[in-house]
Design a binder for these strands. Structure first.
Lengths: 346, 346
DNA sequence: CTGAAAGCGCTTACAG
DNA sequence: CTGAAAGCGCTTACAG
């Protein structure tokens, strides 16, 4: 920050423009622009480039991206649209995206309130920003359809995205099967499924894949017992508490939860009800949040490689932006079962 | 989305501009601009306003915020700068900010990698966006000093912010005292403090306030035992494990952690070491993350009203933006002790 | 109440 | 290799 003073209390120094740099260096603004954008090869003499760089340093010039975006017709901002950043798993995704895109683009997040989808005005304003590209986490089909044709887009965690949309998904079907097989191998035959009531595609796939796998293994899955809840610890716990008597009567020996967050609530309330996990009741989650290993007992879950997927999605988008033809339009990342104490006696 | 089709596969329809709307409505672009910005009072006839609105609907016009920002000299984007969004507590803060600002401004998040501070280039690009204002979560002094004088700023969770900077802080000193008093009242006399090694001001304040309170209550706090760690479950657990023999020898009966995240690691490793919490060792956290109630035993912690603080900060910024003089430049929000099983026998 | 015009800061053919 | 100039889409005094 040494040579670019930003006097917070001094007189409101005027913004330094390319024109001022040009005057200082004795060149045109066209030349300044070429230097700033690294397009000097064969277009700017070494001497002039040097002069411009010195002038930039002297004046503390910073490219105005608003002017730049208007002239180029597109900004260098990539917007990551997420329905819910309270999911800690999302931080990992971002970290992966940053690794690939942070150098050349400005990464911004646009979030809606948890569980809610972005409104029409929010979407319009989004495109009014002229983003260079979009990474959409778990977009609903309407949002996807509303993206203007000329904006490069990559979807993440969107198993229902049309094949024409580049996407990187987690293999949650496989994860759901792994859970079913794991519980079956531990002798469970009657099981409850706590679904998440957000309508996201990944959650539908998780449920359907689990049902299919459990059924084909000859297990019984209780219907709507417990009742689906939002992805919230307290709501999930309450739903479990309400359903437990019936589950118990039906001789259910395990609760499979659509998300780790919900499983935390079930663990908590099962304990409050005096149940011993996993002896009296096995519990499993999905997502393998960083906190799941710290539960007591640890929560058996499905690990999703969020950072790897972030890297993949960002790489795909970068290729799209540089017109590199991408080989595969949709990638799928394997899931991994992590067995912990909540489903396995030591 | 009905009357504003975004043909994803059709021919690349040209962006609809204010000039096209003006032509369609038979008025000037100046009039279109006034209507779009709701500045019609006494400046646009009802008839013309009506015509313009119809033309906008017919053509599916959306204000281009890049052009608008350039003309006005400032965008309608408010950027929330956060060092680490993996902190779930951050989602609550955002929710509060959104409640106040989402209608009139576009809220975007700029994140750096966990624990790292934003680089100079990132900061420059930030201001190249011409944000209407900034909300800074736990900014370091250098960043704060680098904010151009004309950009309205509100800091959050920045107990070291100069008095000239509007800020909303949590009373973490009070929280630290509450922890000390609670443990003292439970009979603890020798205590370990697991600090967080990120250099954020709030963490320094937590530690200093705790040390002062504990000392004045006549308690002994072991020095650098365990060794400070990043805000990471595994790192904290490992640090605890390494320090436990010495802590035990020193007859420490409690570990006070700078953050809940670290406390999770301690709980986990204490359990692995065969310790019973809280009988053999009490553990406390700080932040009261949503997961802390789900630990077993539940984690005693300090609850910070993140959403309330988000609302406050956003309100302050909105007042700053509308030239309303704000009464108080710095607000402080009380902390609340939440006692759970990790420090209290049933 | 209305519109022509200047201007925001930059980029990019274009002519030299 | 270089610069004058047009243009990106909008807003805002200004003159009427």
């Amino acid at each position: 920050m040494s040579n670019a003073p930003h006097p917070r209390s001094d007189s409101p120094t005027r913004r330094v423009t390319a024109a001022m740099v040009a005057a200082e260096a004795g060149v045109s603004t066209a030349t300044v622009s070429l230097v700033v954008n690294g397009k000097t090869a064969g277009r700017v003499s070494a001497a002039n480039e040097q002069r411009v760089r010195e002038a930039i340093d002297r004046l503390g010039y910073v490219l105005d991206s608003v002017g730049s975006s208007l002239a180029r017709g597109v900004s260098s901002t990539i917007i990551l649209v997420a329905p819910d950043i309270s999911n800690p798993f999302f931080a990992q995704l971002i970290s992966g995206v940053r690794q690939v895109l942070a150098t050349d683009y400005h990464l911004l997040l646009s979030v809606s309130d948890p569980g809610q989808r972005p409104s029409l005005t929010e979407v319009s304003r989004l495109f009014g920003q002229r983003p260079a590209g979009l990474i959409l986490h778990a977009p609903d089909p309407e949002f996807l359809a509303g993206v203007p044709a000329h904006v490069p887009v990559v979807a993440v965690d969107a198993p229902d995205a049309p094949e024409t949309v580049p996407a990187v998904n987690f293999d949650v079907s496989q994860g759901a099967r792994l859970i079913a097989e794991h519980l079956h191998s531990r002798g469970h035959r009657t099981i409850a499924y706590l679904d998440a009531a957000t309508g996201t595609a990944t959650l539908r796939v998780r449920r359907e894949a689990f049902m299919a796998a459990a059924t084909s293994l000859g297990m019984t899955v209780l219907q709507h017992l417990p009742v689906a809840t939002t992805i919230d610890i307290a709501a999930a716990g309450a739903s479990f508490t309400a359903a437990w008597p019936q589950m118990h009567a039906a001789q259910a020996s395990a609760v499979v939860c659509a998300t780790d967050t919900q499983a935390y609530g079930v663990l908590q309330e099962a304990r409050a009800a005096g149940l011993e996990v996993p002896r009296d009741l096995a519990v499993t989650g999905f997502d393998d949040l960083p906190f799941s290993a710290s539960m007591n007992p640890g929560l058996t879950s499905i690990n999703l490689a969020a950072d790897a997927v972030g890297v993949q999605a960002a790489t795909m988008l970068r290729n799209l932006l540089s017109d590199t033809s991408i080989e595969q339009r949709q990638l799928i990342w394997p899931s991994r079962l992590v067995v912990r104490g909540s489903s396995a006696l030591d």
